[in-house]
Amino acid sequence: MTHNATSTPSTAGTPGQLRRVAVFTGSAMGARASFREGASKLAQHLAETGICVVYGGGNVGLMGVVADSALAAGGDVLGVIPQSLVSGEIAHPGLTELEVVGDMHARKMRMAELSDAFIALPGGAGTLEELFEVWTWQQLGIHRKPVALYDIDGYWQPLLAALDAMTANGFISEATRSNLIVSDNPADLLEALNNWTPPAPKWQKDPAPLER
């Protein structure tokens, strides 16, 4: 089924009531077995807590591990994939639901609409693109949803060091930097997502209270 993207992602959802969580991760397995093991543990934990996994719809790499692990644990998995990548990323045939959209922009928008929170696992350029887009949208008040890094085996430490340097040099505010959740433990990560409070949008000095 194909969905057309709307102009902005939904701001729906309230703290502590996560129903769907978007997982960004690679279409490759990566160089360490710990990446696969960590991805599986997170997906299993989300499934066991009744949270639907929203992801890119592929059946390869860590994407496939996330989907298979959540499904094996009895969870729901919703995939969103562009028509052009159905063959290249080998669309997963056994998902709870698979949405085929027109292009990558529609994919990212649809995942943002569907999800109450976002978690980036180890991945490459595409994972970074997805992560920084939703984090920027949070900063600008386009959505009021938490964004997190699942730091399997210290994978995100070099990125965190770069973000700290950007903060020290005045390009990222301390408040924005602190709003990015980081954890290497699935239970702690989910607790932080549930307890997260939306920040004030960057360009709005006295915002009215908004629900995410």
Score class of each variant (00 low, 15 high):
S40F: 05
P15M: 07
E48D: 15
A72Y: 08
L18G: 02
V60F: 03
V53I: 15
G16I: 07
R19H: 13
L42V: 04
Q83V: 09
A31V: 12
F24W: 09
V54A: 12
L46N: 06
A33T: 13
G38E: 00
S84R: 11
V77I: 08
R19V: 14
M29K: 11
L62G: 04
A39N: 12
F35N: 02
A72P: 09
V54H: 02
S27E: 06
L78C: 14
A28F: 09
F35G: 04
R19C: 11
V53M: 08
P15R: 07
L78E: 15
R32P: 07
R36V: 13
G38A: 06
M63S: 08
L46S: 05
V86T: 13
S69P: 09
A28D: 14
T14A: 14
G56E: 00
H45T: 15
V80S: 01
S87Q: 13
G13R: 01
S84Q: 12
C52Q: 14
Q83T: 10
S34Q: 10
V86I: 13
Q44P: 10
A70Y: 00
G50S: 10
A43K: 01
V53R: 01
V80C: 05
Q17D: 15
V54P: 04
V54Y: 01
A47H: 00
Q83C: 09
R32I: 09
G16A: 10
L62N: 05
G16M: 08
G75R: 00
L85T: 06
G50L: 07
K41F: 09
G74W: 03
L46M: 15
V54S: 06
H45W: 12
L78Y: 13
K41M: 14
A72I: 08
R19G: 13
G26Y: 00
P15Y: 03
G16S: 13
A43G: 14
A43D: 08
G38D: 03
M29A: 11
Y55H: 15
R20F: 02
V60H: 08
L18N: 05
T49N: 15
S87M: 11
A67M: 06
Y55L: 11
L62R: 00
G74S: 10
V60P: 10
T25F: 03
G74Y: 07
V53C: 13
V77K: 02
V53F: 05
A31K: 11
I81M: 09
